[in-house]
């Protein structure tokens, strides 16, 4: 079994400013960890400290039982690989050459690769599903493709721990799902501990084995996504004055209702659509027409809305939204 990462009373930050303290975490082989928290809360600082790019302010970080502080830079690079947010601007280099650079800590001064090194490079490219990109020039790749190659390069280091700082930052939705699905598979298959920081709450909650959540007070909550959803810490960390994170459907809800209450009736999917229109227009959902300021009935043919003084009907949700906006009585 490959070594895993463990911290003891770790404190991270810069100079005299402690950002997070008393961090005690353990990551096992094959585990996918998502680090969540709002911007500026210290996600990057923690990631950088785990990669020894910043010194720890207190406590220790161990990989496979060895403290990383005393490790040689080659030993560290054989244990921890990183994928950073910064864009690499390399001209005139085929993607597989970039992946070969990942063998750096394993090869001698000449920089020449053995057949075994080449096999590892090939496996790393295959592990991220980038065979079709291997011969392309780095410069011609999209952000998602380049991220994939950078991940393959990190894998070619054959690390025990793979750290990715916001790997999805520049990616569109499809590439984002693709990225995290790949990471999940390779954590399992390569037996690597994968730790990534992310902004994508819903995706992280769906895909991670473990969530590290930094709340507004700078406390670290650790648990399976479902545990943190159940104890409310996720909802607490991400809810603001106008938005709340709902544990039930794992999505954000608008919580300000300046326009009153609304009741919707009709078949499931269409009613759901009508509800999101009403929520966006500032209504709170209620369960009976008696409590509501506006009642909407949705059918296959369209919608019919009734207020205290008015009644209207239409066929599109855009018309419904326009009707709601025109009602000055709310």
């Amino acid at each position: 079994m490959k070594p895993f990462l463990q911290t003891r009373d770790l404190a991270v930050g810069y100079r005299n400013r402690t950002v997070l303290s008393n961090i005690n975490v353990q990551v096992g082989p094959g585990e996918l960890v998502c680090l969540l928290g709002v911007n500026g809360i210290g996600k990057s600082t923690l990631m950088r400290t785990l990669a020894r790019m910043e010194p720890a302010l207190a406590g220790s970080i161990e990989i496979g039982g060895a403290d990383i502080t005393g490790m040689s830079s080659y030993d560290l690079a054989r244990n921890v690989a990183v994928v950073l947010t910064e864009r690499v601007a390399v001209r005139a280099m085929p993607a597989f050459r970039l992946v070969e650079l990942g063998r750096y800590p394993h090869i001698n001064w000449s920089g020449l690769l053995s057949e075994a090194d080449r096999d590892i490079v090939r496996d790393a490219i295959a592990a991220v599903g980038a065979e079709h990109l291997a011969h392309r020039d780095i410069n011609e790749l999209s952000d998602g493709e380049r991220q994939r190659i950078m991940t393959a390069r990190a894998l070619a280091q054959r690390p025990a721990v793979l750290l990715l700082d916001e790997p999805a930052a520049f990616l569109d939705v499809a590439a984002r799902v693709e990225m995290i699905a790949t990471l999940r598979t390779l954590a399992r298959e390569q037996n690597v501990a994968v730790i990534l920081s992310s902004h994508d709450l819903e995706l992280s909650l769906r895909m991670a084995d473990t969530i590290w959540l930094i709340d507004g007070a700078g406390h670290l909550h650790i648990g399976a996504p479902e545990d943190l959803l159940t104890d409310g810490s996720i909802a607490a960390a991400f809810s603001g004055p106008n938005v709340a994170f709902s544990a039930d459907d794992r999505t954000f809800k608008i919580t300000s209702h300046p326009h009153g209450r609304a009741f919707v009736d009709g078949p499931g999917a269409a009613a759901g659509m009508a509800r999101t229109v009403l929520e966006r227009e500032g209504f709170q959902m209620v369960h009976s027409p008696e409590e509501a300021d506006v009642s909407v009935i949705v059918t296959a043919a369209g919608w019919e809305a009734t207020t205290h003084s008015k009644r209207d009907r239409g066929t599109s949700f855009a018309e419904l939204a326009r009707f709601l906006r025109l009602q000055t009585e709310f």
Partner: peptide, 12 residues
């Protein structure tokens, strides 16, 4: 070529 941060992370 990958920048100092990556170079350091690979053991340079």
């Amino acid at each position: 070529l990958l920048g100092e941060n990556y170079a350091r992370s690979m053991g340079l």
